[in-house]
């Protein structure tokens, strides 16, 4: 018990250090922009006068010492207050929360698709090792890893609009308004985003299963007459799932990044579109806030995966 609570405290300290470092980097970002960030933020349409610059500097607190600025910013961030958006005047946080749900749904469904299907496919590859069908699936898995998801999305949109005119593949409707329309529009983005994860995890399940199947306890189980199916799905799979869980956590981070591109392809109003729009408008507080929110969620996902990992495999925390 003592070792595992020490493990959790250690991981919590790691978590705090990483989150602190991430926040420093995101905070410094805006201050590293060459040229005067404030003049840039005022935009080309406004006449840039020293008074206007001073006024805006005071509004976003750039006239204070840098460590005060950081603490003001991070204290706001912790309370969910990232200031107001420069262009719309709305709170940054409300813009983020308005765009959060589509990204969450897209990511969640893609993880479900990629991780869920990878288990049967990986088991199949381990069981049928060396057979023609298995080699084909393996080559398909490498291809799945290297297919650009945005290209897959574009080709899918093209095929759907050619073959099934009238079916809308683009855009987003909230699940609460039109559940069927929501899911229908999610199918293609989820496949485009989840396929590389499916390919990656299938390969991982395959090698973990091959590893597990060569262990002594499998030989014992086989000797006492457990049928092949039970051997693969019950005895070996349980142990093969341990490395699998860590990889799901890491892959979720890739998905968060990939979602930015897939949202752009399918015109889904999520966090990715928000970041890209904010960069194009040079709306830096919004850029900072969305990068911080996305990275912090990725860090938290990995933190919980680590804890889960230690819970499943007690050897880790010792």
């Amino acid at each position: 018990m003592r070792t595992s609570s020490r493990f959790i405290v250690g991981r919590l300290i790691d978590l705090a250090v990483v989150l602190f470092g991430v926040s420093i980097i995101v905070f410094m970002m805006i201050r590293l922009i060459p040229g005067d960030a404030v003049a840039i933020m005022l935009g080309a349409n406004t006449e840039i006068t020293p008074e206007r610059i001073a006024e805006l500097e005071a509004r976003i607190g750039l006239d204070k010492p840098i460590y005060v600025q950081y603490f003001d910013w991070i204290w706001g961030a912790v309370r969910g207050d990232f200031g107001t958006s420069i262009w719309t005047g709305r709170p940054v946080m409300s813009e983020i929360s308005a765009n959060l749900w589509p990204t969450l749904e897209l990511t969640f469904l893609s993880v479900l698709f990629g991780a869920g299907l990878s288990i049967p496919i990986g088991c199949f590859m381990a069981e049928a090792r060396g057979k023609g069908a298995e080699v084909a699936v393996r080559i398909g898995a490498i291809a799945g890893l290297t297919i650009p998801s945005f290209w897959l999305g574009i080709v899918a949109i093209f095929l759907v609009s050619k073959l099934l005119p009238g079916v809308s593949a683009l855009g987003y409707v909230p699940f609460t308004e039109d559940p069927l329309g929501n899911l229908q529009r999610m199918i293609l983005p989820v496949i485009a985003l989840g396929l590389p994860m499916l390919a990656n995890l299938s390969r991982l399940v395959r090698s973990a299963m091959l590893d597990a199947l060569s262990q002594d306890y499998i030989r014992t189980a086989r000797a006492k007459g457990v049928p092949q199916r039970g051997l693969v799905y019950k005895h070996a799979l349980r142990n093969a799932l341990i490395p699998f869980i860590t990889s799901v956590g890491v892959a979720t981070g890739y998905l968060l990044g990939g979602a930015i591109v897939v949202e752009q392809v399918f015109a889904i109003p999520g966090l990715g579109r928000l970041v890209l729009g904010a960069i194009a408008e040079r709306n830096y507080p919004l850029v900072q806030a969305s990068i911080l929110v996305m990275t912090a969620s990725f860090v938290m996902v990995n933190f919980f995966v680590d804890l889960l990992y230690a819970y499943i495999d007690p050897r880790v925390s010792q």
Binding site: V17, G21, M29, I33, L276, I291, N302
Partner: peptide, 24 residues
């Protein structure tokens, strides 16, 4: 390695986008 851990904590594409937001 701590510094590397912190850089590694960002989703890859998101960090790249953030860097480009700074350098253009």
């Amino acid at each position: 390695m701590r510094f590397m851990d912190i850089l590694f904590a960002f989703p890859i594409l998101l960090l790249a986008i953030g860097v480009i937001a700074v350098i253009g």
